[in-house]
């Protein structure tokens, strides 16, 4: 009996729901669209923001400084787009394209040097859901207690919160609006199903008040 040799491949948590997400698109003024952006590189970074290492790490990522304001987001211009999200006063998440995690980890570890800190590849922890369209905010508001109105939240901001009781990192990308939801792989099918259900009503015309 010979063992079959297979090449390990990353399979995203919502691989089996891709057709359901695509079929749920709502067009028009009450439009909303849900997609999975699978396998983004994610690296957790913990260090003291006032230490010299913080400045070195920011520089290595192509940023003038790490975001220190709660909910801050910085995107580095470069060959590969890398974004740093504020997760806590001494904690950040570096997000990059698929396969970039080893390179991010190497760059950050090199910059950290002897400095006190932690750099961990957590790419397998979460997947990314992208929800966009004129009614995307209304869909999220059905399950999120955060104020997502433009007066309180907008592009270039992120927040860790609960959406339909699932812990997510919520990030607004543009004013379309487009949001990215980073959610744990084991919660992703539940959250996708919840979002698909929450999107259903937008297929019908708005009920007059």
């Amino acid at each position: 009996m010979t063992a079959e040799v297979t090449t390990p491949r990353a399979r995203s948590p919502l691989h089996h729901r891709a057709h359901l997400l695509a079929a749920a698109d709502v067009e028009g003024p009450r439009g909303v669209r849900l997609r999975e952006l699978p396998c983004a590189a994610q690296v957790t970074l913990r260090l003291d923001p006032s230490s010299p290492a913080a400045a070195r790490v920011a520089g290595a990522l192509g940023l003038p400084a790490l975001p220190v304001e709660p909910g801050g987001v910085r995107t580095a211009a470069g060959a590969t787009e890398r974004t740093v999200l504020w997760l806590g006063p001494d904690e950040w998440l570096v997000v990059g394209p698929e396969g970039d995690a080893p390179a991010i980890e190497a760059v950050v570890r090199d910059a950290l040097g002897d400095g006190h800190g932690a750099v961990v590849d957590v790419s397998a922890n979460r997947t990314t859901l992208e929800i966009s369209g004129p009614c995307a905010r209304e869909v999220l508001e059905k399950g999120c207690s955060l104020d997502l109105h433009p007066r309180a939240f907008g592009p270039g901001r992120c927040a860790q919160t609960l959406l339909a009781r699932a812990a997510v990192i919520l990030r607004q990308i543009d004013t379309g609006p487009t949001y990215h939801l980073l959610v744990r792989g084991s919660f992703a099918p539940y959250l996708a199903d919840w979002l698909l259900d929450a999107m259903t009503e937008f297929r019908s015309p708005e009920v007059p008040r």
């Binding site: 709660p70 927040a159 860790q160 919160t161 009781r165």
Partner: peptide, 10 residues
């Protein structure tokens, strides 16, 4: 003190 007003469930 970091994130601002949030629901008690968090």
């Amino acid at each position: 003190p970091w994130c601002g007003d949030r629901d008690e469930t968090e």
